[in-house]
């Protein structure tokens, strides 16, 4: 669509006086580039500073790479195993995202396509839970995890992801907008069971919405700090955000090591984002329109 229209409008623009267009465009580009620099500079600082020793950092301003990368890396790995943290984060985030998507979609479909008694009330109830701060139930969450023997396990962070109100809301909007009742009717005529219909026919149709949602919930879970802070005890189960905080050691602060730790905790995300950025942004946009 957009591509087809594009030539037309560019033509239209060209008809305007050229100089005027250019000056305003220059300002716009300057604005955009400045903002882009602001977005990137902290990462640059972080990576550069990760290659310097503590005393270098303490004594002068630095804008070029240093030579202490290996040294910093070794002293970081002595204290925390960042790659282990990366694995932990990956396990927790992938499992939670899978649960959020499947059960969110299942539930949304139930609300969207079945006019059972109490449908509206229950749906509003689900929506209302979105307003409840996660921290509200923190003490109780600790308690229930203790009762279920889930303290200090990945499951304590993964299982609750199956009840994600935002996911329900999000997918239901999408179903309401894109999936007509006729599809279900025809599936029923074909004799497919309700769950089979959902798994084989509906679920694939939800992929665009689920992709967007998946990215949200993956990022959310990846960045979750408070949950693991309260529910995990063992360092070897800590996800990245906690591990990075661990670098603020007991005996003094080694800034070079800390910068490096922060950099490494962010690096996998930077790489993934660089590869998939178009897709990620596209998905977010899809999600937003429907939501």
């Amino acid at each position: 669509m957009t591509q087809k229209i594009m030539p037309q409008t560019t033509l239209g623009r060209d008809a305007q006086p050229k100089s005027k267009v250019k000056t305003s465009h220059v300002f716009i580009y300057i604005f955009l580039v400045l903002l882009a620099i602001i977005c990137i500079v902290p990462f640059y600082i972080m990576i550069i500073y990760g290659t310097h020793t503590n005393s270098e950092i303490a004594s002068k301003f630095i804008f070029l790479p240093g030579s202490a990368l290996v040294e910093n890396y070794h002293s970081m790995m002595e204290n925390v195993n960042i790659w282990r943290g990366f694995m932990n984060s990956l396990i927790i985030s992938c499992c939670s995202t899978a649960l959020t998507l499947y059960f969110g979609a299942l539930n949304a479909y139930g609300f969207a396509k079945f006019k059972f008694k109490g449908n509206k009330v229950l749906f509003w109830f689900v929506l209302a839970t979105m307003m409840v701060p996660q921290q509200l139930g923190l003490v109780g969450t600790f308690r229930i995890m203790y009762l279920l023997h889930l303290l200090d396990t990945y499951a304590a962070l993964i299982l609750p992801a199956a009840a994600n109100a935002f996911a329900v809301f999000f997918v239901k909007q999408f179903i309401d907008g894109t999936i007509p009742d006729e599809i279900m009717e025809s599936a029923r005529v074909d004799g497919a069971g309700e769950f089979k219909t959902f798994n084989r026919i509906i679920l694939p149709m939800l992929v665009p919405a689920l992709a967007a949602l998946g990215i949200f919930s993956f990022i959310g879970s990846w960045n979750n700090f408070m949950g693991p802070l309260v529910l995990l005890f063992s360092n070897d189960k800590y996800p990245l955000p906690l591990l990075v905080q661990l670098l603020q050691g007991y005996y003094g602060t080694n800034y070079g090591v800390q910068y490096l730790g922060v950099a490494l905790s962010v690096l996998p995300i930077i790489i993934a984002f660089a590869i998939f950025s178009k897709r990620i942004i596209g998905s977010v946009a899809i999600g937003a329109v429907k939501g």
Partner: peptide
């Protein structure tokens, strides 16, 4: 009845929600 399948679809969510969402809030 066909419409009652809805309950089955929303059940897993609500079970998890009651255990991990509602219980903590009530306990708090």
């Amino acid at each position: 009845k066909k419409e009652h399948y809805g309950y089955l679809f929303i059940a897993p969510f609500f079970i998890i929600f009651i255990v991990f969402g509602l219980y903590p809030i009530v306990y708090s």
